[in-house]
Design a binder for these strands. Structure first.
Lengths: 144, 144
DNA sequence: AAAAATCCCTAGTAAAAAACTAGGGATTAA
DNA sequence: TTAATCCCTAGTTTTTTACTAGGGATTTTT
């Protein structure tokens, strides 16, 4: 039940873009440094996010990446689905399952994992990047 | 965010033992056949469950395995923790974390994963093997 | 025009984990 | 004594993970 580094690092990167959201694109190098991630590896992750339409890129000097939508309109669930695939502890409980498990219709353990999936989905879809930024801000304030 | 076959198969085996819970131990071969699992592999999983005190074994002919406690008193969470380790999408949100992530105290993405963990834990700890058996019974009834 | 800063793409790789398989030993009931 | 079990551990294959490497394309700056 572990998240891979794709989801882990990818969310950090998206959070970083959200924290610095504005008119200017942010070079990946900067994100990688701030979040302490390998730039080359992050490049692969952000390519996936770009193809999925969650970030836009600007090429050339002074280029970089920028969120395709407002941080308010991107949820953690959006990011994780793109990087980790369908949210589901088992394949047979993914929303897009077309499989052929012959116990599909009465598998009791499957029902358990469906409930787990639903509870994960509810959490991930309820948190936006903007929520994360606000939380960071609150922590910052409470330390003053 | 995938469960491994350990948790998957292990839960099926425990559910099978719960369905047939009584005075007699159940040979692993029977469980493996009913749940369509490799007996050799299942042996390794049940050894882990036995060492953790969730099942008892009876050796020799007519031997087998039996739940160490009533199905009412064993939750899915118990089984999964034994087979998959601490429930946590990331190491740093496991209950036993002693690590040294320097962002530990203010990491926002960590807060997200803590919420996910809590929601998974709540589901897994709220379902007992007996609940699973009851659900199976209901499905059976509703088909008549 | 040249140089520098970026994004873009793909192939390769090393390490780890997952998912078993295999087989022999110990114990106990029939 | 035999057969049915559990018990244990070593080995293997496959898959996944988590990168690294490097060259090309595009755009801004000098």
């Amino acid at each position: 039940m572990k998240l891979s580094t794709k989801g882990h690092y990818g969310l950090k990167a998206m959070y970083d873009l959200a924290l610095h959201y504005g008119n200017d694109p942010i070079p990946l190098k900067t994100v990688a440094e701030r979040q302490r991630l390998s730039e080359n590896y992050l490049e692969q992750l952000i390519a996936t996010l770009r193809r999925a339409g969650l970030v836009k890129s600007v090429r050339g000097a002074q280029g970089g990446y920028i969120l395709a939508r407002s941080p308010e309109d991107i949820t953690v669930g959006d990011v994780i689905r793109v990087l980790e695939g369908p949210i589901a502890p088992l394949e047979c409980v993914s929303e897009e399952y077309l499989g052929d498990c012959d116990q599909f219709h009465y598998c009791i353990s499957r029902n358990v994992w469906t409930k787990v999936r639903d509870s994960i989905v509810e959490v991930l879809d309820s948190i936006s990047l903007a929520d994360m930024c606000r939380e960071a801000e609150e922590i910052k304030q409470s330390r003053k």
